[in-house]
């Protein structure tokens, strides 16, 4: 019988090293997110459009040497030609050059005010969430009060206060823009600060600044990045609205908002053509930032991981 058993059964080859082997390649949080967002077709389309617009905003005013502010009185409201690639506006200015310069200005406003929101919002939200108690109450109530003045109203009042211009527009947008970001960061910090690794860091004697910057904020990065991606289009939209209300970037400086609202006024006299390019770029920008933000939200959400 024993002989038979030996033939039928083979001892398993147990190798302790192999048991610990990780078969799946180890993925960092960001690598994993990148793999998942690549599968999201809409987000990828958004990324491609965004890259193209960014590229054109950089090289557009370089490859065409027309001036953005020079008025050509013998070429007013012309259709595209070899001289003026996208035609000219009601002041005889080159639309192609103005369009990409304007895209630069709008993107600049969008990105800088998103970054300011990021810094202020993360700082205030982080402190409020981590400190808790009275500090939390005061900071959050302050944000709440700021937010109960309709956002655009504050921005308009600030624009009057600071005078028109790119810088004052960014400042005005930053004054109220940090509130949603601070709420998101506060919520995340409230969740994370109770976790064991923070307790461990505390028991090692880490100070508040260290814990906030090295432990809490990095772990809240997902929602923060999603919010930044969605803040940029909101700022670009606000720029367009302010321009339409006559509080935009002063002439002759172009921005997408200024060009679109000028073109919208020009439609009244029957010139539909001017509206085409700035409105298209603004819509494409809004579209790509929004789908990218949505895609990022899905990709960074561990619950949706397959």
């Amino acid at each position: 019988m024993d002989e038979n058993k030996k033939i039928m059964f083979e001892p398993a080859n147990i190798n302790p090293d192999e048991m610990e082997l990780i078969k799946r390649p180890s993925l960092s949080y960001w690598k994993d997110a990148w793999i998942r967002i690549r599968k999201n077709k809409l987000a990828m389309v958004g990324l491609v459009i965004l890259t193209v617009i960014l590229f054109m905003a950089i090289i557009g005013p370089i490859i065409n040497t027309n001036s953005y502010s020079k008025q050509n009185y013998d070429h007013m409201q012309e259709l595209p030609s070899r001289l003026f690639w996208f035609g000219t506006d009601e002041g005889g200015r080159d639309i192609f050059v103005r369009l990409w310069r304007g895209t630069r200005v709008s993107l600049f406003i969008g990105i800088i005010s998103a970054l300011l929101d990021l810094v202020i919002g993360v700082l205030i939200g982080g402190i409020a969430g981590y400190k808790g108690g009275a500090v939390d109450d005061i900071l959050m109530r302050f944000g709440e009060i700021l937010y109960s003045i309709p956002y655009m109203l504050t921005v308009i009042i600030f624009m009057i206060y600071l005078g028109p211009g790119v810088n004052s527009m960014i400042a005005a947008l930053a004054v109220t823009g940090w509130v949603p970001m601070s709420r998101i960061v506060r919520g995340e910090v409230l969740k994370i600060k109770e976790l064991e690794f923070v307790q461990a860091a505390k028991s090692f004697g880490a100070d508040t600044k260290w814990i906030l910057l090295k432990h809490l904020i990095p772990n809240a990065m997902g929602p923060i990045i999603v919010n930044v991606t969605l803040t940029v289009p909101r700022a670009i939209f606000s720029e367009a609205t302010l321009s339409f209300l006559g509080l935009g970037v002063p002439a002759p400086q172009p921005s997408l908002g200024v060009m679109t609202s000028d073109a919208v006024q020009a439609v009244v006299v029957g010139t539909y053509y001017e509206l085409l390019f700035p409105a298209t770029v603004i819509c494409l920008l809004m579209f790509s930032f929004n789908v990218l933000g949505d895609g990022l939200r899905d990709a960074l959400d561990p619950k949706l991981r397959k």
């Binding site: 289009p233 609205t241 819509c283 494409l284 809004m286 579209f287």
Partner: peptide, 13 residues
């Protein structure tokens, strides 16, 4: 997406 992408003054016009 069209709703969030088109500025209201363009939509209105």
């Amino acid at each position: 997406i069209v709703g969030v992408s088109v500025p209201s003054f363009v939509m209105g016009r």
